[in-house]
Design a protein around this nucleic acid. Structure first.
Lengths: 133, 133
DNA sequence: AAATTTAAGACTAATTCGGTCCGAAAGGTA
DNA sequence: TACCTTTCGGACCGAATTAGTCTTAAATTT
């Protein structure tokens, strides 16, 4: 239960790779993919979506590639994970308040709430910068 | 991320239903399925596997059905969840120690370890009995 | 023997996962 | 201008997982 998908793993590896680069260094997707042992086209997709979110900056053409959008110390593991996997959501009843089929009588609801907030807290407290060491 | 499947939801609902019954009352799978609004054949599969694990006892023939295998106070939410979803495992690198592709240099490993133990702890601390109230 | 109820296993449709492929667009270079 | 490089966007695809169904068999009771 609760497994991170490969997409999530790959995303984390890729971002850590970028974070380890010297300040301002632009990396080709081919370079990142090779270094992290991730299928290139797949990683490209992931990074394209990250570019939209501002998590990374991308540049096209010769000399182009990817750079972190912010200092690694200002990117949390949670941000990266949620960017690819969607929100931490142990049970769909936590999404729309009231989707819970049995409404107020759902006693499990608060438990999932707690799981959710605990996991969020753990992932919030880890920065990408810490993961580069 | 980290979503319980329907199977997990159904299992929890079914077990709670059993726990709410008067001591020793045997319930038909058709009755449980209807009450919890779960497809009957699907719930039957779930309960069959629970019977093997001793989580419930089953009886065939007229007057047969299902009963909890133990007092609800002695069944944790974790047990029920893991029985259907498998172990709490935020990342496959936590399974076989050493599957972690980048071995000792995987800095994310301890984070997943922490997530795992926190979630386990939360689910361990909730009994089915508490959920019946 | 007949009716009831769970057990076991094969089967299936829909969705998600884990990618690939290709043409277009943007930017650099000669 | 023409050409090269590199990301962007979208369609596509096979395999695995999810969410069930269906059928036949095996207990148990009446």
């Amino acid at each position: 239960m609760m497994e991170l998908t490969r997409k999530g793993e790959y995303a984390i590896r890729g971002v850590i790779y970028l974070a380890r680069l010297p300040q301002g260094k632009v990396a080709l997707i081919s370079e990142i993919a090779e270094a992290t042992r991730v299928p290139q086209t797949f990683l490209a997709k992931i990074f394209q979506s990250f570019a939209k979110l501002g998590l990374v900056n991308s540049y096209r053409g010769t000399g182009g590639g990817f750079v972190l959008g912010r200092p690694a110390a200002k990117i949390s593991l949670r941000e990266v994970v949620e960017a690819v996997e969607g929100p931490i959501m142990p049970n769909r009843c936590l999404m729309d308040e009231g989707t819970c089929e049995f409404g107020e009588t759902c006693m499990v609801h608060p438990v999932w709430r707690k799981v959710q907030s605990q996991v969020e807290q753990i992932l919030d407290s880890v920065t990408i910068e810490e993961l580069t060491k």
